[in-house]
């Protein structure tokens, strides 16, 4: 099914033709994610009387809309990127204020049926379909114990209001919730990291504009992102950490992984790899902001896109 055009847009035949031509890209992308989705284009003017095209996507799960300048249609890569954003928003609408919580399980050997019992029990939680439940797990088969699975770093991620019933389900099924503190919560660690970042500012290294920790649930490694205008710009969207022993640098941690990146590369990385743990953690407010020490306010202002699903 082609996209629909509003009457004002149909009246502008040249622009309408250009919009229709975009169906070649838009509709396959849309149907890949939702067979029932529909697309509607509208035309309006901004306060400087310039044309603004609005694309609305709807399906039975929700809807999402965004504006395009007509010239944006000619950049195929940009257009694809915007449509992906929009599809993401349609499937999983932005819910400001809804935080995600990870309920972590202690590592364990679990009988096959115990794991199945947990899956069933999670499915019985009221309205669990709205929890956006996501399993993070490493379940391994161990030949020496053929009736068991080895669970390591197993976590169940849900919207905050479902965390409590999920915890109950975990305990009822005989698993133990992991309660040991995250590294960042341990005494003196945040201060040591602040010192490390401050040292980089002072001793001629790329001066960080922003510094934050993510993957906070990692009990061994500190993941430290430093965004610096003095870092080389790669333009490839890679987000690679370089790891070091944390001995003598920060307490309690086994290693520290530094992700040094230019601000433009961070934006590129978000476009090409938005499922990276960093962006999940930013979206879910699951980061520790070190520089500036303002709970992430300046970072969110500088990178508003990164909070989008």
């Amino acid at each position: 099914m082609p996209s629909q055009l509003s009457a004002p847009l149909e009246e502008r035949s040249e622009l309408a033709e250009e919009v229709r031509a975009k169906d070649r890209i838009l509709m396959p992308m849309l149907f890949e994610h939702s067979q029932t989705a529909r697309a509607l284009w509208d035309l309006a003017e901004d306060d400087r009387r310039r044309d603004v095209l609005t694309l609305v996507l709807t399906d039975r799960w929700g809807s999402a809309a965004c504006d395009f300048a007509p010239e944006e249609l000619s950049n195929e890569e940009l257009f694809r990127s915007r449509v992906y954003d929009l599809i993401g928003e349609m499937i999983m609408p932005r819910r400001t204020g809804v935080l995600r919580v990870r309920v972590e399980l202690r590592d364990a050997f679990a009988p096959v049926d115990q794991l199945e019992q947990l899956r069933r029990r999670l499915g019985q939680i009221q309205s669990i379909g709205l929890a956006r439940l996501r399993l993070h797990n490493q379940v391994r088969f161990v030949p020496q114990r053929p009736n068991h699975f080895l669970l390591t770093n197993f976590a169940i991620e849900v919207d905050e209001q479902f965390a409590s019933p999920v915890r109950d389900a975990v305990v009822e099924c005989g698993f133990q919730v992991r309660e040991d503190p995250w590294l960042i919560q341990r005494e003196g660690l945040r201060e040591a990291l602040m010192q490390l970042v401050d040292q980089h500012r002072r001793d001629g290294q790329p001066n960080p504009d922003f510094a934050l920790c993510f993957r906070l649930q990692d009990r061994e490694t500190i993941h430290l992102l430093e965004v610096s205008a003095e870092a080389p710009e790669l333009g490839d969207g890679s987000l690679s950490g370089v790891g070091f022993s944390a001995l003598g640098v920060v307490p309690y941690a086994h290693s520290i992984k530094i992700y040094l990146i230019h601000a433009n590369d961070l934006q590129t990385a978000f476009r090409v790899n938005r499922e990276h743990q960093l962006f999940n953690d930013i979206r879910n407010d699951n980061c520790e902001f070190l520089l500036p020490d303002d709970r992430g306010e300046a970072f969110r202002q500088a990178f508003p896109d990164l909070q989008r699903a």
């Binding site: 490390l196 980089h200 001793d203 290294q205 790329p206 430093e226 870092a231 080389p232 710009e233 790669l234 333009g235 370089v242 070091f244 640098v249 520290i256 530094i258 040094l260 990146i261």
Partner: peptide, 19 residues
């Protein structure tokens, strides 16, 4: 030339903890 930034970033990252 595009390989130089990748190595520069590695060198800068190495310098961040162990000069």
């Amino acid at each position: 030339p595009n390989h130089q930034p990748a190595l520069s970033r590695l060198i800068q990252s190495l310098n961040l903890v162990n000069k």
